[in-house]
Design a protein around this nucleic acid. Sequence first.
DNA 1: GTGATTTAAAAGTCATACTTTTGTGGACCT
DNA 2: AGGTCCACAAAAGTATGACTTTTAAATCAC
Lengths: 233, 233
Amino acid sequence: MTTRARGLHTHVLESLGLAITAGEYPPGSVLRTDELAQRFDVSRTVVREVIRVLESMYLVESRRRVGVTVQPAEQWNVYDPQVIRWRLAGADRPRQLRSLTVLRSAVEPVAAGLAALRATPAQCADLTEQALGMVATSRGRQLEAYLVHDVAFHRIVLNASGNEMFARLGDVVAEVLAGRTHHQVMFPDPDPAAVTLHVRVAEAVRARDTAEAERLTREIAVGALQELDVLAP
Amino acid sequence: MTTRARGLHTHVLESLGLAITAGEYPPGSVLRTDELAQRFDVSRTVVREVIRVLESMYLVESRRRVGVTVQPAEQWNVYDPQVIRWRLAGADRPRQLRSLTVLRSAVEPVAAGLAALRATPAQCADLTEQALGMVATSRGRQLEAYLVHDVAFHRIVLNASGNEMFARLGDVVAEVLAGRTHHQVMFPDPDPAAVTLHVRVAEAVRARDTAEAERLTREIAVGALQELDVLAP
DNA sequence: GTGATTTAAAAGTCATACTTTTGTGGACCT
DNA sequence: AGGTCCACAAAAGTATGACTTTTAAATCAC
């Protein structure tokens, strides 16, 4: 089973999306709907619906009389969670992971600063709880448990920022952190300095110390980037 | 003519996308495909393709036996350029403009810093050229000409950062700047301080002064946010 | 009332026929 | 040789109708 049995549409979409983002079809390649229908053994209807979706992601462009042409990577909507997943699953995972981490390093400090301004008491409490959870699981090869708290922590910060664009990056951050834990060669225990920083961010947010929350989060980001340089140069 | 005569699919997609993002269908509303087909006077085929695209944007969810349900705004893929356009054209343009500006304020300084590291000589020259163009058009009610240079300037910075995620925000920035010029009540001439800052950013990038480029761009961002607070409180 | 069973509503899939756009190649002219 | 125009055909776009599958909800049995 290549993918879940979630319908023909999903299956074809997944296969094609993965193949294209993996660079199996060089930009400019031309696909024809009939040919695809035959290849996947589905009706042209299904293929057309898939093509329309891929088109909305700027992975392909469909033109009459010529066919469906694969677009160059610069066109792709790299913010589409689906595209992100495909790319993380494919060949240029390292590049993707890096550019996402750089994005995080830009966004999260600002988000943390805003969170310090706007976080509700409940969010503050939740944040502290996750930070403590990170401390508790930071030793003894409990990477999976640590990951859960880490993801939750960053999600709360992004949500508490009150900015919808930031909030929607929660899934991206989750993917990056999960990717780091699962596919990157990683140390058996997370960096203690990073753990401490998370605790201090939680404190700064609760104390409404915008500048400090931003500064500390920036430190976390720098750490993440350095880690990436060390482990995947 | 509501939209360009670019095909039935495009027309229906545009209408529905606009309506949904405008909040005309409260979250949880249910649409039925054959009803839509009838309403737009197109075949079910066309409607289904549109639904599939809207689904990939997380604007709707299609389930058997129940129909196509409109998703709450928190689900929407707010990074999809299409969604951004729809929202900017619709009712919550102000909110959208604000959250995009906040995003810019996070991303662009970091992008400028990276650009200072990586910009090619050609990009440096181009950047300077655009900055000078901004100076030249900053007086005498030449807002349109100014806008062109402004957009070009920020696009170059984002591209020169060498990060694909940043580069793809060029269109977003263009939309925001255009929106500010066209729909916001704006001063007859741009803020002279902002113009100067752009020139200095260009200089910093050429001088490979990462920290300065980042700092100056942050100043521009702060200015943009303040402007938003003054004009659309 | 609770749980199993039937029912029907809506999306999902398929096959086919037809329309529209548009590259391409060839005829024709200069 | 080179350009213009035109007819052809290829491929996507659209429409229609029949059939399948899922599943919410109504019905029935206990």
